[in-house]
Write a protein that binds this DNA or RNA. Structure first.
Lengths: 345, 345
DNA sequence: ATGAAAGCGCTAACAG
DNA sequence: CTGTTAGCGCTTTCAT
């Protein structure tokens, strides 16, 4: 009664060929729209394929085919449920699909071991190339994979090894711009709250913060710097400790989206959300609906994804020009929280 | 100079076998941890594999292997960049990985044509099974795929055809609960704002709304019902038109996350966000940070994803017990917006 | 315009 | 314990 759920075996090219009374090669020609088949034969093949419900087996085809393509790209990100990562995945997927390419996706949690395992899994499936967000720290696994010849594009963070494309954003410049904006409003005590310092983006954003202070002629106050804030809760605690200082900051530069959320939470709970300025790096849904709406540095995620996919597809197609490192500009989006002036003494 | 970027061909089992002076079958045994290989030979094979950098080709192996498994699942959702979809993908991915299974993911935009195309693409790659969010309207393509024997689990929306598992949430019951809560506060004019009515979830949530009104002894006011709200902007316009009524609603039940965002936007812009109650279906990041924090019905997304993955993996493993339709409870999360009482006349 | 033979990398089914 | 043969479904190569 439940035959419905049994895995029926797919019809093969041979069966189609038999039904159409031609050779498998002729079927192959028809299926792949290759020339050299008479109209009558072609029609018989199409009819046979239709009646059997034949569907080509890309797996078998790619095994035999000379280019060995699987028409599949690997995507290896930190966390596919993070809005930044998922928006990026979507952009890559869309661009890849235009070329008939699908995406095999995985989350590595920024864990080198997991990243290595997933890399192996992708390689076992012979993906044509990989878009990857390198884990913080060493990139040995990626480099090894790359040296085997696997086409690879790094996103969000550049490679620490050679001959590999990357697509990143203006982390440093945009951070400097954010800090300069706060300084321009008169803020002199601007705190930095950043993610794990093993991440290149965090380092860049911190450097941008330092440059911003320097350009504004402001002194760096070490007690206003909090790094390695991983997750909302940790960020929250750090923000709280900053506000507890005898001479607390009047503005915060929060260098990652979860950090921004943590900081806003504390400000709200203390009723300071209209008194302390905040600019966050990375936009996120609803940032404009919070009270006050959050001023952020927004990356052009669709463009980053599209660019990465296009680069990779070109490499897969044999483009072996020197590696490029594309930088997609981010923009400062003023919404309110970043426009709060310092208190007048 | 740039040999680094050339696609080198992977070493094969044959090459390993030659180097280790054994047959390919022996290599196969070692690679797959099968018994029947002497320790000396096994060690020679391992050494040869290591020195050549051999990595098994799952594609070739699955072609020959009797179970035909690709150790890959297809995931076909509406939009992988939507927080609900991406959280679900992540949950499925995590569970699948425990079984060494990877995920081939695609977005179909709720478009039947795209869904059909992606289904074909997944089939061409011979995925072991598919987790899919059915498009609104007919499910012909899914049914056909299912009838070919492809293991399939529907998430978020149940199948309109037989012999197919699904995992959904308590759309109707939780909607009724939300409306009853608003009624319990004294609201009598409760509006419904819903997504496309072709979607099963929208219909269920609307039915729950009706049940809530009925149970509370409230009359249905057709002018307070707005359906087919697709996207934030459309929802915003609908909410505005509701507030423009001579006798506007005092509470809103927004039946989808983007609709909730649109409604909140309008309320804020009119300064009514502390005067009109709102309960939304579907939680989203920062819903607790908005002013007022938004009361929502929250689905247990990780559990939905895990359940779907486990069901599918079991089916792939040959479980052919009758189809099940799991319903994962959602909970009402009170945060403020849903606790606003009606104005006292 | 068509097909036969060989073989992609691997494993099933047998021998030894 | 180990190897040989065949063949998964398809495309290549080279005939005809």
């Amino acid at each position: 009664m439940n035959d419905h759920s049994a895995r029926r075996s797919e019809p093969t090219m041979r069966e189609v060929a038999a039904l159409a009374r031609v050779s498998t090669k002729t079927v192959s020609r028809v299926i792949n729209d290759l020339p050299g088949v008479g109209e009558e034969a072609a029609e018989r093949v199409r009819a046979a394929a239709r009646s059997l419900g034949y569907r080509p087996n890309l797996t078998a085809s790619s095994l035999r085919r000379s280019d060995r393509r699987s028409a599949t790209l690997g995507v290896l990100f930190e966390d596919l449920s993070n809005p930044f990562d998922s928006a990026l995945l979507r952009a890559i997927e869309d661009r890849a699909r235009q070329n008939g390419v699908l995406v095999l996706a995985g989350s590595d949690e920024d864990d080198p071991t997991l990243q290595r395992e997933l890399l192996t899994s992708l390689a076992a499936r012979r993906v044509d190339g990989i878009v990857v967000m390198a884990v913080g720290g060493h990139q040995d696994a990626l480099q090894q994979e790359r040296e085997r010849g696997t086409p690879m594009v790094l996103v969000d963070r550049p490679p620490t090894f050679g001959h590999t494309d990357s697509v990143t954003t203006t982390n440093r410049d945009s951070s400097r711009e954010a800090v300069l904006k706060l300084a321009g409003l008169g803020h002199e005590r601007i705190a930095f709250l950043g993610d794990r310092q093993t991440l290149w983006t965090s380092q860049e954003r911190y450097t941008g913060y330092l440059e911003g202070l320097a350009h504004a002629g402001l002194k760096l106050h070490q007690e206003l710097v909090r790094k390695d804030l991983q997750g909302v809760d940790v960020a929250e605690a750090a923000a709280a400790s900053l506000l507890d200082l005898d001479n607390p900051p009047t503005a915060l530069f929060t260098a990652q989206n979860l950090v921004t959320v943590g900081a806003m939470r504390v400000l709200r709970s203390r009723g300071l959300h209209h008194r302390v300025a905040v600019i966050g790096f990375d936009d996120f849904p609803l940032a404009d609906m919070v009270d006050p709406a959050i001023t952020v540095v927004r990356q052009d995620v669709p463009k980053i994804g599209r660019t990465a996919a296009e680069l990779l597809l070109a490499r897969v197609d044999g483009d072996d020009s020197p590696a490029v490192h594309k930088v997609i500009p981010a923009v400062l989006v003023p919404r309110g929280s970043g426009e709060i002036p310092p208190p007048t003494p």
